[in-house]
Every structure is written in structure tokens, then in C-alpha cells.
């Protein structure tokens, strides 16, 4: 792909992310908010994909869009939706939340001047093009699915398998705790 088309896609994804985030915060109906957040997650996954971080993109879709958002939706469905619609959208503390959000924006702005990989101050040229100097080769390799797969089943095989035991315990626990009272044979 040419640089221009990459930039076009990036600006679309970035603008759509910001827009859907704003809509997610401002909608009155919580279910609508959740759907906008879903759009946000998918667009962010697109940005990750554009940067060559396929693994992060997959995690973004599977974990955030797939698992966490559905979990949120379940909770939202349990709420009193019609009552929620009549109340004001923001609580009294919204200026603090806005301040926190703005400080993240500031952080993102200033991080442009720091090279993303080794933490040095980036050269003016890199800032101008928006592409970090050292991210093109090393950064792309680090986030690739193949590298992560090799690491998981190579040096990190033991922790990986231990994590599967933790999952097994969680499944057994869910079955045990959710069961009905056992009737003896």
C-alpha cells in the first residue's frame, strides 16, 4: 500500500474512533452507548492492524469487543432502562472525568515527541512524518502473531500450561458453584 492510502485509512480509523467514543459517552440510552463503544473497539483494532500488531488487534476484538462488552451489556440489561432515560446523562462529577480524559489527550500529544521504542526524544523528522524511527523493523516483529506463538510454546510453555490449569480450576469452580442441590441416588 502506498503511504497515502495508509494515511487515509489511519485518519478514517482515528476520526471514527474519536467520534464513536464521544457518541458512546453522550448517548442517553445505555444500550446505544454500548454499541458505540463496540464501534470504538473495532476501529481501535483496525489501528492496531495498520501498525502491524495483529496479535493486539485480535486480542482487542476477542477480549474487549467479544468478552468484556458482552459482559457490560448483560449488566446494562439488568438495569432499569426506562428510568435511566429520564435521568440526566452526567453525574455531578463530570468535570473531573473530563479533566482526566483531557490529561490523557495531553499525554498522547506529548508522547509524539518521545521515540516509542527506546524512550529517547525523537528527531524532528520522525515527528513530522508521524512514524517512529525504530518501530518499522523491530516493532513490527515484536507484535507479530508468529513471534508471540513461538514465545508461548517455547520459553514460556510452562507458564502457558499453568494458565490453562488456572482456567480448568475456574471451570470446575463455575460448575460446582452453579450446581443445584445434589439429590442422592
Amino acid at each position: 500500500m502506498t503511504l497515502l492510502s495508509i494515511q487515509t485509512i489511519f485518519y478514517y480509523l482515528a476520526a471514527a474512533s474519536v467520534a464513536s467514543a464521544l457518541l458512546g459517552v453522550t448517548r442517553k440510552n445505555p444500550v446505544h452507548s454500548m454499541l458505540w463503544v463496540l464501534a470504538l473497539f473495532l476501529h481501535v483494532a483496525g489501528i492496531f492492524l495498520l501498525l502491524g500488531a495483529e496479535f493486539l488487534a485480535a486480542v482487542q476484538v476477542i477480549v474487549y469487543a467479544g468478552a468484556i462488552l458482552i459482559f457490560y451489556l448483560f449488566v446494562v440489561m439488568l438495569l432499569d432502562l426506562s428510568g435511566e432515560l429520564t435521568r440526566p446523562r452526567f453525574g455531578r462529577h463530570w468535570p473531573f472525568a473530563a479533566l482526566a480524559g483531557l490529561s490523557f489527550v495531553a499525554l498522547a500529544w506529548f508522547s509524539r515527541f518521545v521515540d516509542s521504542v527506546d524512550g529517547r526524544l525523537a528527531s524532528t523528522e520522525a515527528v513530522a512524518t508521524g512514524i517512529p524511527e525504530s518501530s518499522t523493523d523491530a516493532g513490527a516483529l515484536q507484535g507479530s502473531v508468529a513471534e508471540i506463538g513461538k514465545a508461548l510454546f517455547g520459553p514460556f510453555a510452562l507458564p502457558f500450561e499453568m494458565a490453562s490449569l488456572v482456567l480448568l480450576a475456574a471451570i470446575v469452580g463455575a460448575v460446582v458453584l452453579a450446581r443445584k442441590r445434589i439429590v442422592g441416588p
Binding site: P159, A170, R179
Partner: peptide
């Protein structure tokens, strides 16, 4: 001999303990 295995081991035993404590669901 690694903080990763240490954490996972400790987490495995604690997770089972939560369930064992609450296993008398009635």
C-alpha cells in the same frame, strides 16, 4: 524460580481456595 511461575502457582491455589470456601452453596 521465576515471578511468572510463582504468580501462576499462587493464583492457582488461591482460585481453588475461593471455590472450596464457598462450596457449601446452600
Amino acid at each position: 524460580l521465576d515471578l511468572l511461575t510463582l504468580y501462576l502457582g499462587v493464583e492457582l491455589m488461591t482460585l481453588c481456595a475461593y471455590i472450596l470456601v464457598g462450596i457449601r452453596v446452600e
